[in-house]
């Protein structure tokens, strides 16, 4: 916005998200401890890792829903962490999809997809409605434009949320655990919409627990643990034959569910369990 070009951004049109030495602390807790990575045009990057590893925080720092403590983020070679940056304009270039959908409950599905087009992009309402309808069609909900979020299933709501983000005609999409709040049988519809998007060439950064999706769709997988990137690379390498012990442990837990219950209960849980069973015994 300011015109002074910092030396860090490459200036390469193909570098859509550039993250440099990103730190984020909540009080005394440092959640991100220096993240550096770049997402290129048309690339699908899946961020995986145990809960508390900072992957959602990383995604939220990219569009500044969280203010980084330190480090810089460039969107389309423009620094969003610059205090003078036009954050609202930069945000229109990235669609965000939340774990809890966050559809506007007082608006219909179609209105959810038109309100920002009309109010932010200043498009005329007819044009906005036509594009919103096209996006609802794309996610397979073309006939539900008049429904309110409360009248739809979780899977349908999440697909409307994707259509809402697409209606801003963004350069890239950010997904924050988009299927984690869904019933298992509804996950497939949302993933298939995301797969179509990826195949259409959309730049995507996806925080997810769906290993099958990451393996199939991702161009690159980032494994995070303890606020740092432990390893990154093509899914065949990171998921297929991980080089780090932490990655192997994590994947073993995720891919082999029986292993989760074997010996991983924390002490508090074990104690609670013991306390529960004594009176009945």
């Amino acid at each position: 916005m300011t015109g002074t070009t910092p030396s860090i951004p490459t200036g390469n049109r193909n570098d859509e998200i550039q993250i440099y030495d990103l730190h984020k602390s909540f009080g005394d807790l440092e959640v991100l401890k220096g993240i550096t990575t770049t997402v290129h045009r048309g690339e699908v990057v899946c961020v995986i890792g145990p809960s508390g590893s900072g992957k959602s925080t990383l995604l939220r720092c990219v569009n500044l829903l969280e203010q980084p403590t330190q480090g810089r983020v460039f969107i389309l070679n423009e620094e969003i962490t610059d205090p003078d940056a036009d954050i609202d304009r930069l945000r229109t270039t990235m669609g965000m999809v939340f774990q809890s959908f966050n559809l506007f409950p007082h608006l219909t599905a179609l209105e959810n997809c038109t309100i920002a087009q009309i109010r932010v992009l200043k498009k005329n309402p007819d044009e906005a409605r036509a594009f919103a309808q096209a996006n609802l069609d794309k996610v397979g909900l073309g006939d539900r434009g008049g429904s309110y979020p409360a009248q739809m299933s979780g899977g349908q709501q999440q697909r409307v949320a994707i259509a809402r983000a697409l209606s801003m005609d963004p350069e890239m999409m950010l997904f924050d655990e988009p299927t984690s709040a869904l019933d298992p049988e509804l996950v497939g519809d949302v993933l298939s919409v995301m797969r179509d998007l990826a195949q259409g060439g959309m730049t995507m950064m996806v925080v997810t627990h769906e290993m099958a999706f990451a393996r199939e769709v991702a161009d690159r997988v980032i494994f995070m643990d303890g606020g740092v990137i432990v390893e990154e690379g093509p899914p065949a390498e990171v998921i297929g034959k991980p080089t780090h012990e932490r990655t192997r442990t994590f994947l073993k837990r995720v891919l082999d569910p029986t292993h989760v219950n074997a010996g991983d209960e924390d002490e508090a849980y074990a104690q609670r369990h013991a306390a529960d069973s004594t009176p009945t015994a």
């Binding site: 569009n63 609202d88 990235m94 939340f98 966050n102 506007f104 309100i115 992009l121």
Partner: peptide, 18 residues
């Protein structure tokens, strides 16, 4: 009103006032 509503609005490029 859940905080996620403001986050969704801001992520669509709406200003705080809007």
């Amino acid at each position: 009103v859940p905080k996620g509503q403001i986050e969704a609005a801001r992520s669509l490029g709406m200003s705080p006032g809007m």
